[in-house]
Simulated scan of single mutants.
Amino acid sequence: MHLSYCTNVHPAEDLAGIVTQLDTYAVPVRERLESDVLGLGLWLAAPVAAELAADQDARRRLRRELDARGLEVVTLNGFPYSAFQAPVVKHAVYHPDWTTRERLTYTLDLARVLADLMPDDAARGSISTLPLAWREPWDAERADAAYRNLDELARGLAGIAATTGRTIRVAFEPEPGCVIENTTQAAGLLSGVDTEWLGVCLDLAHLACAWEDPAAALGRLRAAGLQVVKVQLSAALEAADPVAARDVLASYAEPRFLHQTRSAFDVAADDLDEALERGLPGPWRVHYHVPLHAEPVAPLTSTAPVLQAAVRELLAGPEPACDHFDVETYTWGVLPPEQRPQDAAGLAAGIAAEMAFARSLLATEVAR
């Protein structure tokens, strides 16, 4: 199994900046973990992905930079297209979506890059992507355009495999508010895709926000013939009593990211501000990725128990249901001030603590 942390927590969007962030964050994380090799779930914005896809020498140079620092890449995060750490992201992260050629081109660029970045002994690579589109607008015409692009994506991945000998699979990530919000919708809307190349990215914070039972969710995907290509190890905010926790919840409301909020009673809001204004019935789960190893501000808790239950289900049986696990906490910079790292060293320490938590969790479940 491969364990990595996702670099979409860092803002760099050009090749020089990406190499700099390896030294600023990734190497200190590896050293804190006392690991010979650290996995990265690399995020490449569309312009740098296009630059690398067009230049094999540049890809080889980046691979050498990774190798020299004891870093390896078997998975890429292809969900954000660009500007993921901009002052305001919100709904922009869902554009361009899978109805567009831009999304197809970006994803195939990533696959070409990953084929040259993967370690020689890696069995396969993975790319996570958005779950088709935000739910509005969505109609038959947009759906047809998306499925045509998915067919072309599968053909493109097959062509890359034939040319390079490297298998790259793309994983669609159910997320609250999107066309595919949960595993029920994934099983229905992805039932006709080419499952040799396309599958599901199971983000465990999103799974929790959908109030899904991990065992039932995995059973649903298996019954639909969909592979879990990638797992994002993440935990969401939970408020057992949103009224009592209102002031603390308000401290997590912020302008950069969308924090979809879901009540256990199937009532939804598209952002935490909206949920607070409307007063949804509790308990709530909020799409706000919180550090895996640390509890949020009391009386809030995290959905870490859902994370642990899901990992247990994924690793039960003679073979794991997935072999790519990526820690994705991209919200470090917007946490309430008392929980926010104050400098680069503080962020590296926080990421290392999350990775240590994830490594211990995986080891414990493998040993069962």
Rank of each mutant, 00 (worst) to 15 (best):
A145K: 12
Y81F: 15
S82E: 15
E136P: 00
R64M: 04
D67P: 03
L132H: 13
A50D: 06
R135Y: 02
P137I: 10
P119C: 10
R103E: 00
R64D: 11
A133E: 08
V74N: 10
R135E: 15
R69Q: 06
L52K: 11
G70C: 10
A86Q: 02
R148E: 11
F79N: 13
A154E: 11
A162I: 02
A83I: 00
E141N: 07
R155K: 09
D55C: 14
R101T: 01
E51W: 05
N149E: 11
N77K: 08
A54I: 11
R59E: 13
P131Q: 14
A133T: 15
D97A: 04
A146P: 10
L110H: 07
S126I: 08
S126T: 12
D139S: 06
F79K: 13
D109H: 09
R61S: 14
A45K: 01
L66I: 11
P131V: 14
R148P: 02
G78F: 09
D116E: 09
L132F: 11
N149T: 13
P137G: 13
T107F: 02
L150D: 05
D55K: 12
V74P: 07
W43V: 06
L157Q: 05
G125K: 14
Q85L: 06
A86Y: 00
A154K: 10
L44Q: 08
A140R: 01
A50P: 04
V113P: 01
A50W: 00
S128F: 07
W43Y: 15
V88C: 04
R148L: 04
A58L: 08
T75I: 12
A140C: 00
G125M: 09
A154F: 04
D67H: 15
L71H: 10
I160M: 09
P119E: 12
Y147V: 09
A46P: 02
F79M: 15
I160V: 07
A162E: 14
S128M: 05
D116S: 04
P80K: 13
L150H: 09
Y106G: 10
W138S: 08
D151E: 14
A115K: 10
P119Q: 11
A53V: 00
A53T: 02
L108F: 04
H91C: 02
L150W: 07
D109V: 01
A146G: 04
L104G: 03
L117Y: 01
R112G: 07
E51H: 12
H95P: 00
A86T: 02
V73I: 10
A115V: 08
R60I: 12
E141W: 00
V93L: 09
D67K: 13
R64G: 06
